[in-house]
Design a protein around this nucleic acid. Structure first.
Length: 442
RNA sequence: CGGGGCGUAGCGCAGCCUGGUAGCGCAUCUGCUUUGGGAGCAGAGGGUCGUGUGUUCAAAUCACACCGCCCCGACCA
């Protein structure tokens, strides 16, 4: 994409309303624009990041055996009356009345709806297990939205729902998601630690929050140091094999949010193993048994021929929130530093002197050949001053900057800058093309 | 929802206290110069001062109401 044809409204100054760094940088780099309290438009750069995050989530869900569907944002109140949550959910739920005076709501989550889909289509235990997920916008009418998309009212979320015949297999389903989550966050360059969580209003007896450690985190968290450096299950992890040891290895070490914190147990750890930090919740998984299947009568015929209530779990990932969480975890004073896997473009190509024949030609060659190789290149072909160009590129945080100017070219060189480390390297045009033309596999 | 604060040009702000018909910086446009880390000079465009009502000869400025947004707290992916 040529910057001259792209839409990327970057700002030098920070809008007054933004308090935390991710919110400031998202506004300054032109990722989002606020439309109302807690409601945002996603501009091209932000939209690209969102799509990258979404795709990683999707790939890991699929790998773990979950199946994608798409449920609507608007739901009927009747469905929620069945579970009793229409009354229980309170003012957080945005209620809407349609022209026929039918009561509707903008879904804050989808347990009822997925249970309805399940019960009307799955009749036998032979069809189990089933795990369905979707990636859809949700709305929770937070009393006080803040921190940009970190705590918006409208947010993009992946939510998966598992259905099993009995508690044992339901726990197996839970572990699949647990492992898929470890991989998902790691692929985004995040260290997310699973912590015992309060099951809250959704209920159930087994639940973990996945927490990214960041100074600006909303809650205090406590965990064992070894959790931070634990290796991630590989891409070819056998989900049908032993998931228990992977999960146990992690859940046996101390890790808890403030609400679940047990000071005595934590103090019992060796001092150098204790980590007290701030955390951002980026996922939450629950096993809640028959909490919804029972009131909504979701049953299948069991092996003995009698109907059995299905055992359910639900598994959320805050997709839009992750965009902010990644920035919180990865930025410097100049701007965002995107991990390669979620960067809106693979690299920036900076033409320091548009109009200079040799510079234009070198840039054009790099742009075309990397494009042909499948790389997403943001080519800054604009007339801005170099200082402004560099500042903008640092701000938007693409992992690599390929810098081409007449001075370097006179020596047969262009410059490659690593946004994260700041390291610069001089290469020939051909060497730079070769370097970036091959996409590293994760 | 309790407490606090703010709405003036795209962004950041001054002007309001003490009413007299709107200004600064950045950004934008034009010209010249400049050109490897957010340039300089000269000129230009852009605002129903959140909305409504009231007070007044006169309201960005005073009063009342409403709307919106932000911050702290209680609540949450």
């Amino acid at each position: 994409m040529r910057l001259s044809r792209f839409y990327m409204p970057v700002m030098k100054e920070t809008p007054a309303e933004a308090q935390i760094v991710s919110h400031r940088l998202m506004l300054r780099a032109g990722l989002i624009r606020q439309q109302a309290a807690g409601i945002y438009s996603w501009l091209p750069l932000g939209k690209r990041v969102l799509a990258k995050i979404e795709q990683i989530v999707r790939e890991e869900q699929n790998r773990a055996g979950a199946v994608e569907v798409l449920m609507p944002t608007l739901q009927s109140a009747d469905l929620w009356r069945e579970s009793g949550r229409y009354e229980a959910y309170g003012d957080e739920m945005l209620r809407i009345t349609d022209r026929h005076k039918r009561e509707m709501l903008y879904g804050p989550t989808n347990e009822e709806m997925i249970t309805d889909i399940f019960r009307s289509t799955v009749k036998s235990y032979r069809q189990l297990p089933v795990n369905l997920y979707h990636i859809q916008w949700k709305f929770r009418d937070e009393v006080r939205p803040r921190f940009g998309v970190m705590r918006g009212r409208e947010f993009l979320m992946k939510d998966a729902y598992s259905f099993d015949l009995d508690a044992d297999s339901a726990r197996k389903s839970y572990r699949r998601m647990f492992i898929a989550y470890l991989r998902t966050y790691a692929r985004m360059g995040l260290k997310a630690v699973p912590m015992r969580a309060d099951t809250g209003p959704i209920g159930g007896d087994l639940s973990h929050e996945f927490i990214v450690l960041a100074d600006t985190g909303e809650s205090q968290v406590f965990c064992h140091r070894d959790l931070i450096e634990m290796p991630v299950p590989p891409a070819d992890f056998d989900y049908d094999g032993d998931s228990e040891s992977v999960v146990n290895e992690r859940t046996s070490l101390y890790a808890a949010t403030e609400e679940m914190h047990d000071a005595a147990a934590f103090e019992a750890l060796p001092e150098d193993k204790r980590i007290t930090a701030r955390g951002i919740e980026v996922g939450h998984i629950f096993y809640f048994g028959t909490k919804y299947s029972k009131p909504m009568n979701a049953k299948v015929a069991g092996p003995e021929g009698t109907d059995v209530l299905v055992e359910m779990g639900s598994y959320g990932i805050g997709v839009s929130r992750l965009a902010a969480a990644i920035i919180e975890a990865s930025h410097d004073e100049n701007g965002i530093i995107w991990p390669e896997s979620v960067a809106p473009f693979d690299l920036a190509l900076v033409n320091l002197k548009p109009g200079d024949a040799a510079t234009d030609e070198a840039c054009s060659k790099i742009y075309r050949e990397l494009g042909a190789a499948g790389r997403d290149v943001l080519y800054d072909d604009t007339d801005e001053r170099v200082g402004a160009k560099f500042a903008a590129m640092d701000l938007i945080g693409l992992p690599w900057q390929v810098i081409v100017g007449p001075k370097g070219l006179a020596k047969g060189e262009i410059e490659v800058k690593n946004r994260r480390t700041g390291e610069r390297e001089s290469l020939t045009v051909e060497a730079a093309i070769k370097r970036f033309a091959t996409r590293p596999a994760f």
